[in-house]
Design a binder for these strands. Structure first.
Lengths: 209, 209
DNA sequence: TTGCGAGTTGAACGCTCATTCAACAGATTC
DNA sequence: GAATCTGTTGAATGAGCGTTCAACTCGCAA
């Protein structure tokens, strides 16, 4: 029954890395936020980068229980689940007044030459996200044309989210995020309309302003 | 006729910020790369952040002559110009073995609480890019459905590029970038096909792997 | 010849950073 | 009750950071 010192450090680091980024967060910041002394941190982690590794691993394990399940609560339709998840990120942006969006994306672009284990965990996080969305599009079955690569579409959804977060964070407005998601919605609507020989017919909403 | 010290500092900073990011580039790095002493830098710039401002302003002024014109050389069709520009970024990724893509995007996500002038210049850079692509889609006229918001489509193209760069940089492979651009191409193709009562008919290529 | 301003030099400054370490505390084991 | 293990303490370390500054060079104008 070890004390929760490690947990407190991890939780403090998660918050600080999301708010300030990795490089701009000092070890002293983490220590202050966790209410822990320097030696204790180095008792649990070999160094600062290993705290980052633990944070990224926590995110990775949290994709399903902490991200997907809350976003998909009450949403059964697989395609609606994709946009429910995007809406989840929109809410995150909105609540923070567009100051931070996806912590994985921020760290991915912040570290220009990440050590291999860090890069591997970043890639694993992206892969978990993509695979979940790919599952939605696969579950959509013949509502989408058979010729559409489900995984590529999932990647496209992730680039839309990450790019939208980047632009919206830069001008502190949800406009760019909303515009990008609106276009993705229009695309998926058109895909559904084009393959509508089977499955429930879909009403095509115009992508206007 | 002032010596080119300021130019050398600017050029060195552009290269280093793109390669290592802003925070990870020390003033000493810039001085070494430019072959200049500390005092000289502070003769031309009040501080490190003002070097960043000058770099961002240089990028902004270079969007047309340094980015668009080379990418669009010999490409007349407005819609092909959009994808020619995306191909330009692909080449940039490829030549650097997927280690760096868009420097504006990297800095935008690296700085979590940028000073107002820095954020304004980042936004101005994105806006210049978006407006240029918006011009392409406007020029495409009735090849695209009238209901499609040209600016939103331009934003969508930027999120595709920035998101694609992020993912490709993370797993050091062009796959994600290619997948995202392929889906954007399919979307634009479908938009053209749907509004094809006027203009040149467009052959719809399947988005398969 | 003197004076001046633009540009240069590089050592020095104060600060923050990640990390270390010897000493200590308390529970568990033998 | 001695030994051991896990965890804690917080001052100290040394490197690197952005920045400052007094002294200097040099071309040019008066």
């Amino acid at each position: 029954m070890p004390p929760d010192t490690r947990e407190r450090l991890l939780h403090a680091a998660i918050g600080l890395f999301a708010r300030k980024g990795y490089a701009s967060t000092s070890v002293a910041d983490i220590l202050d936020a966790a209410g822990v002394n320097a030696g204790s941190l180095y008792h649990f982690f070999p160094g600062k980068q290993d705290v980052l590794l633990a944070v990224l691993e926590t995110y990775r394990q949290g994709i399903d229980p902490m991200l997907l399940q809350p976003a998909w609560d009450g949403v059964a339709d697989p395609i609606e689940r994709v946009f429910a998840l995007l809406g989840h990120y929109r809410e995150y942006l909105r609540r923070t007044e567009c100051t931070y969006g996806c912590p994985i994306g921020s760290i991915a672009l912040e570290l220009h030459e990440p050590d291999p284990p860090v890069r591997a965990l970043l890639a694993a996080n992206f892969d978990g996200w993509i695979s979940a969305i790919e599952g939605c599009f696969i579950e959509a079955g013949d509502r989408l044309p058979a010729s559409v690569d489900r995984r590529a579409l999932a990647i496209f959804a992730l680039t839309t989210m990450e790019g939208g977060v980047m632009l919206s964070r830069t001008d502190r407005t949800l406009d760019a995020f909303d515009a990008a998601v609106r276009m993705l919605r229009d695309y998926v609507d058109r895909l559904q309309a084009s393959g509508s020989s089977r499955g429930t017919p879909v009403t095509l909403s115009p992508p206007g302003p």
